[in-house]
């Protein structure tokens, strides 16, 4: 083939290819630069900090070292917070999924001309500051508030209150990250051809079976995205635990914050941060692997 072609063609082609690939690198450069400056550099700084040791006699001052012991030390001191973060974020994620799924389903399939408006309403709360919204929950869940009074009348609250308990923290986490669950779910469901649901019914599937066999599997990308977008920030969150929980409900975010700001124990705080990141990475990795290979039929 090449022999038939005029010689000039074969000598001209390679430069074109090369130029195109160079353009690609050129276009990638800003993104790469951004990552280097705002992710790689802080990460390395954080890692270096996590290995530092105190300067003897001077509290709050640390010097470079290679003290890996900061890690086991931090872990043993705050394992409780790690576990609590996992449990709270996990429960909040499941609750958010249960609340968000029917909502997203309704907007996607029944929203009609109101779809746009309903979606704006979903994200509208995020227009107000995160901190402000969480403060508002202090009022909503207050001891004399209607919700607490009502539930107390039914005697279902283990501590006779909601505010300053784990329940309030989980409620806050669920509420605050709900939009991040709804939007990807909506995107996945809205993409689905409603004819598939009809076809399933036409093929003798009860509506519940249709959900299990058709709707749910096809919405899995949205479920995976939504749960990650909820779980990851909820896992590292500290505002909800700080404003809505008691000292017994502190999460790993609070531990990091307190070590950085209050104790000024930077190596421990850094070690906690690195471990938090690593843990999230492992959880995400395992989760995606499981979700990806799950038998969808």
């Amino acid at each position: 083939m090449a022999a038939v072609l005029p010689a000039s063609t074969s000598t001209q082609q390679p430069p074109t290819v090369k130029r195109r690939s160079r353009t690609a690198y050129f276009l990638l450069a800003p993104g790469m630069g951004w990552l280097a400056v705002f992710f790689a550099v802080p990460f390395i700084t954080l890692f270096v900090t996590s290995l530092q040791v105190p300067v003897p006699g001077q509290s709050g001052r640390y010097m470079p070292a290679f003290d890996l012991m900061n890690y086991p030390e931090a872990l043993s001191a705050y394992s409780e917070q790690f576990i609590r973060s996992f449990v709270y974020a996990g429960i909040a994620t499941v609750l958010a999924l249960i609340i968000a799924y029917p909502l997203a389903y309704f907007i996607a399939f029944r929203g009609g001309q109101w779809k746009g408006l309903l979606l704006v309403l979903v994200i509208a709360p995020t227009f107000a500051s995160f901190l402000l919204r969480t403060y508002a929950w202090r009022t909503i869940l207050a001891d004399e508030g209607p919700i607490t009074s009502f539930l107390n009348a039914l005697s279902v609250l283990p501590q006779d209150r909601i505010l300053n308990t784990g329940i309030a923290v989980i409620a806050g986490l669920t509420y605050n990250f709900l939009p991040f669950m709804i939007l990807p779910l909506y995107a996945a469901l809205d993409r689905m051809d409603p004819r598939l649901i009809e076809a399933s019914g036409d093929l003798y599937a009860h509506p519940a079976t249709t959900f299990r066999k058709v709707v749910w599997p096809l919405s899995l990308p949205g479920v995976v995205a939504g749960t990650l977008l909820t779980f990851i920030p909820a896992f590292g969150d500290y505002i909800n635990a700080q404003l809505l929980g008691s000292t017994g409900d502190r999460m790993i975010g609070n531990a990091i914050q307190i070590n950085f700001i209050q104790f000024r124990d930077y190596p421990i705080a850094a070690a906690l941060s690195i471990m938090l990141m690593a843990l999230i990475l492992v959880i995400v990795f395992v989760y995606i692997r499981r979700a990806g290979t799950e038998e969808l039929v």
Binding site: R195, L196, E198
Partner: peptide, 10 residues
């Protein structure tokens, strides 16, 4: 169905 509506995940 006019658009076949085959289940894409199966």
């Amino acid at each position: 169905f006019q658009s076949y509506a085959l289940f894409p995940h199966m």
